[in-house]
Design a protein around this nucleic acid. Structure first.
Lengths: 120, 120
DNA sequence: TTGTTATATTACCATATAGCGATATAGTGA
DNA sequence: TCACTATATCGCTATATGGTAATATAACAA
């Protein structure tokens, strides 16, 4: 099963591709970052607003924002003293919603299983 | 902006939900695990086959499989001496493909921006 | 200039995790 | 029973990462 550059069925991925994909998933793998994205999905926010809305420390938020920017998921522009952040990649919303709805199904399944016949 | 339990616009996610979502993304955040999933997408494999196909150490593969099982993405059944693994959650494929195609677009964009000769 | 504000960066500690060799466990067969 | 195989788990080290306080930087105001 040799494969030239031209015929691309995405069966086998290069190590580099895996590395890049993993890096993007990793950006989504922290609750703090998901919270920030969750807030940003409702619209642009300054860093200060994100700090206030999330309840996390300023340095912490700044660092997590750096990770999200690095991953290309968030971008920002300076406006005077403040930095206005926004979602830079629409995929974020899709990925999170997909994960959310899958999780919801799962938990509803478990809830239903536990609901009336508690074996305990 | 108080929100009661009943009205659920999925705007705000609970800390628990974020934690669970983050945990699933984390399972996808390692190249080794992505490689294993990549192999498993082509069909069931025993652990030994995964070790051979991936080139990683046996203990390492076993540990990463445990993570994927924990996240509900891979399941397995014992067959005699061997353990046959398979993708347990179809979302894996969707998530990875989504990420892949997004990445591809991006790299093609960069390549186009950088390349004087796009045909290399 | 000096001072203030918003954000980024640094330094540090604590924890999590990857990788690996060694060992344990479980199934199979002699 | 003993030996062999396939897989899981343990013990360890090295590295990565999260959190936070302190500091640096940058933009603005007086």
């Amino acid at each position: 099963m040799k494969r030239t550059k031209k015929e691309e069925s995405p069966k086998e991925l290069s190590s580099l591709a895996l590395e890049l994909i993993a890096r993007r998933f990793r950006a989504l793998s922290e609750p703090v970052r998901l919270r920030l994205l969750n807030v940003l999905m409702q619209g642009e926010h300054t860093v200060g607003q994100l700090v206030a809305a999330s309840g996390f420390g300023q340095a912490n938020v700044s660092k997590h924002l750096a990770v999200l920017r690095e991953a290309g998921m968030v971008a920002s522009r300076k406006e005077g003293l403040t930095t206005v952040c926004f979602i830079a990649d629409a995929i974020v919303k899709d990925l999170c919603e997909m994960m959310c709805s899958r999780l919801r199904e799962e938990m509803e399944g478990k809830a239903a299983a536990l609901a009336f016949d508690p074996e305990i």
